[in-house]
Every structure is written in C-alpha cells, then in structure tokens.
C-alpha cells in the first residue's frame, strides 16, 4: 500500500522528516505517534501527496510518487485537523462537490448512506456554518469515505470528533482489515488507537525510533512502550 525509503522533507534548514523508511501492507493499520514537532503530520502529508519529498522514494497504492500522483490520489482518504469542507455550502452540497471531483457513479445514493451513518441526514440541507465542531468533523468523515478509499490517512482524528463520530471512526478502522483497506493514524492518544492498530511507529525529530507490532498487546503496555522511546 505504501513503501517509503529514506524520505526527507525539510522546512528551511530544519528536517521535519529525516530519512524515514515505511512499509504498509494491505489491510494494515499503523499508529504513528511522537511528541509535538516529531514530523508525524509532515510524514502523513507526504504520503497524502500534499507535500513533495526532497529526497528518498515513495510509492503509494502501487504508484511511484510524483509520477503516479493523480492515480494514487483516487484511492486516498484524508482526514485532517480541519474538516476540509466549505462553511457556506450545505452538507449535501459539499459531498456533491467531492463526489464530482472523484467521479463517483452512485453519488447521490452514497451521499444519503453516508449522511445517515454519520447522523447528519436530517441536517443535509443546512450550511456547515451552522454545525458544531463535532458535526463538521463527522461530515469530514463522510467526505473522507465518500469515494471508498483504499488508504485512510488520519491526522489526530479523535481530537475533534464527538463521541458518535469517534465510535463511527473506530468501527470503520476495525473493519478496514477485512476489506483490505489500510490506515495510517497520527495520534497522541496511543492507548486508544492501540485498540485498532496493528503496529506502532514512533517518530522523534523526524526519525523513526520505534516500529513494532502491537496486535494482542494491552493498550496500557503500548502506552508505556511509547513513553519509553518518545522521551
């Protein structure tokens, strides 16, 4: 799903991602943790093709980046800190826009299904400006899932989701393996994500300091392991 070798991205002189190797298999869910400024979000944005690596190689969904960027983007679902929806459009208009950008055949039916799942069907015709933060992030969850992505890239998803949205996301991640979908979940809530992740990768100062399986481990044990290496 994702293969990166020696990935480097710097902001000016500072290397936010410094020679990272990463391999993500189909159906695998990776928790990506680390202290603030460790390079987690930058690494996620590199894999999302929103940033271009200054050196190293990157393959996403079988496509070399940057050569196959457009094809890879079809299979990427990206959930960021911000909902990435227009506040002055309705929930439905936002999803229609993204449905058209991804060329979804059954757009209207898919939108109704997703709005129902995220509990926003009754507010479909309301502008996002009238939504609470949690509702807007639930709409963002629907936006991310709209085109049935094979690779989910989530940047601290639990930070802004309300309880309903967080449960929906956990359910989505729990079923991802069975569907062959993979996920990278940037998080500070290591023990929460440990329940659905297969592997924990910890970054510090742009470098990988831990990369090991977490399946079968107690979430608190995963937390302790994280604290040992994250400093």
């Amino acid at each position: 799903m994702v293969t990166a070798r020696g990935l480097v991205h710097a902001y000016g002189e500072r290397r936010a991602v410094d020679g990272v190797d990463l391999a993500l298999a189909p159906g695998e869910r990776l928790a990506l943790a680390g202290p603030n400024g460790a390079g987690k979000s930058t690494l996620l944005r590199l894999v999302a093709t929103l940033l271009r690596a200054q050196s190293g190689s990157l393959e996403v969904l079988g496509e070399e980046i940057p050569g196959g960027t457009r094809i890879a983007r079809r299979g990427i679902g990206y959930l960021a800190h911000d909902p990435l929806v227009y506040l002055d459009l309705t929930a439905r208009q936002n999803l229609e826009l993204y449905g058209d950008l991804y060329g979804i055949d059954d757009r209207d039916r898919r939108i109704d299904d997703l709005l129902e799942r995220v509990g926003l069907l009754g507010r479909a015709e309301d502008t996002v400006r009238t939504f609470s933060r949690g509702m807007a992030q639930r709409l963002a969850l629907a936006r991310m899932l709209l085109h049935r992505p094979r690779l989910l890239l989530l940047d601290e998803p639990h930070a802004s989701l309300d309880a309903r949205g967080a449960t929906l996301l956990d359910d989505e991640l729990a079923t991802a393996t069975a569907d062959g979908r993979s996920a990278i979940i940037v998080t500070h809530e290591v023990e929460r994500v440990a329940r659905v992740a297969d592997r924990l990768m910890v970054l510090r100062a742009g470098r990988v300091v831990l990369d090991e399986p977490t399946a079968g481990l107690d979430p608190m044990a995963v937390r302790r392991r994280y604290e040992e290496v994250a400093g």
Partner: peptide, 18 residues
C-alpha cells in the same frame, strides 16, 4: 478567500482533479 479562510484547499489538492 473561501479555500484559504475556511482551510479547504487540502481537500481539493488531495483529490485526483488535475
């Protein structure tokens, strides 16, 4: 302005639209 102030640009850029 809408893309910048409402921070939507990443959503458009991560889509496969040329």
């Amino acid at each position: 302005v809408a893309e910048r102030e409402q921070r939507v640009l990443d959503g458009l850029l991560v889509s496969p639209v040329p």
